[in-house]
Design a protein around this nucleic acid. Structure first.
Lengths: 118, 118
DNA sequence: ATCCTATGCCTAGTAATTCTAGGTATGGAA
DNA sequence: TTCCATACCTAGAATTACTAGGCATAGGAT
């Protein structure tokens, strides 16, 4: 379950350098430490959607081994979108962290700001 | 958008003390700093679902002002569920943090563990 | 030679989740 | 007496990601 952050994750995976779909899936699995093991049926439609929205471009290429690959590149607009997603994520994560922290058996209540000061 | 963490949020809101639905909504808005402003159509069905699942109990009470309220209490099972949600959240958040951090314009690449050591 | 696995792409339909939009009812303030 | 906040509820829509299939080729194993 990607919980609404699929676009952010895919864009983040492309932030370093262009990559083709299959490689993106592996990159996400690797970077997330195995937490995100996305099926192709999740990622490919997402890439098509992102391209339609102008966040990525794609080019068909032929790999050294002779296979056809569709390589996706982040557009400036896509990078801006990623930045936005980052902001949204920070707010979201902080909000959940706060919710989770309050009522934590190990956490004293009512002292200081409820945010974990990370 | 709750992004699949609705149950966790509602359970967390009840971790401190029992509360009725309307109060839970306000508590969530307050604790999240306004990030989560959940409509009743989201929270009430969630509470019913959680009760069916045995995570909360409910009792009809009459408030000092004479209004009928349904007060929800976390069950031991609900508390265990909350603990589980907390673990899931930590893994999830760390994975996204890592994804977001890589390729961050301000972040040097390839040094140290990719996790923000919080 | 043939099979199997990994690579590499794709889509239609389904399942799960949350929101929209409506409904009901009462207390207290303007 | 009218309006707003409180307080509960539900059916259906919208969004999102996944399941389950399909197609094709390279390279290693049998």
């Amino acid at each position: 379950m990607l919980k609404g952050h699929l676009d952010a994750i895919v864009l983040a995976a492309l932030a370093g350098e262009p990559a083709h779909g299959y490689a993106i899936i592996e990159e996400i699995r690797r970077r997330s430490g195995g937490v995100f093991n996305l099926p192709e049926g999740t990622v490919y439609p997402a890439l098509h959607r992102l391209e339609k929205a102008g966040a990525v471009n794609s080019d068909w290429t032929t790999a050294p081994n002779g296979r056809r690959r569709r390589v996706y590149t982040l557009t400036p607009q896509g990078r801006a979108s990623l930045d936005h997603h980052r902001d949204v994520w920070r707010d979201f994560a902080r909000a959940i962290d706060t919710m989770m922290a309050s009522g934590d058996p190990g956490a004293p209540l009512g002292d200081g700001p409820p945010w974990p000061t990370r």
